[in-house]
Simulated assay, not measured.
Amino acid sequence: MSVWDDLEMLLDSPSSSVTVTSNVRGTVKETPNFKVEEDVAALRKAIEGLGTTEKTVIEVLTQRSNAQRQLIGTAYQKATGRVCE
């Protein structure tokens, strides 16, 4: 049996050692008190001008859920006219 077979077996069979506490998947959870405008302002400040403050970009984007990052991308594009890729 391969490692993948073992993992599939764990996912398919109920076990007391594996519990799901939420419908949210993944390891990055939503940030409480999320304010898209504050994140967009922080990113604009970090990206615009001479050089990029990578620490700020990393801190903001790695601490937000996918849904929150999508909101940030839309708001950033609206504010700057530039597409986030």
Rank of each mutant, 00 (worst) to 15 (best):
T21Y: 14
S22W: 09
S22P: 08
N23V: 09
N23F: 08
R25L: 12
R25V: 11
G26L: 12
G26Y: 01
T27F: 15
V28I: 11
V28Y: 08
V28K: 09
K29N: 03
K29S: 05
E30K: 14
T31R: 13
P32S: 13
P32L: 10
P32Y: 08
P32M: 08
F34S: 06
F34L: 10
F34W: 04
F34M: 05
F34C: 07
F34Q: 05
F34H: 03
F34I: 01
F34V: 04
K35Y: 08
K35A: 14
K35Q: 13
K35T: 01
K35E: 13
K35R: 10
V36W: 10
E37D: 14
E37C: 00
E38Y: 14
D39H: 14
D39F: 07
V40E: 12
V40L: 07
A41I: 00
A42F: 07
A42W: 09
A42E: 11
L43F: 06
L43Y: 07
L43R: 00
L43M: 13
L43N: 07
R44H: 06
R44G: 02
K45H: 13
K45E: 15
K45F: 07
K45M: 13
A46C: 04
A46W: 01
A46S: 03
A46G: 07
I47P: 06
I47W: 13
E48Q: 02
E48V: 00
G49W: 04
G49I: 05
L50D: 14
L50N: 11
G51P: 08
G51T: 00
T52H: 03
T52G: 06
T53M: 04
E54D: 12
E54G: 03
E54H: 12
K55R: 10
T56F: 06
T56R: 03
V57A: 02
V57T: 04
V57M: 00
I58T: 03
V60H: 08
V60L: 06
L61E: 07
L61I: 03
T62E: 15
T62Q: 14
T62G: 06
Q63W: 03
Q63L: 14
Q63G: 15
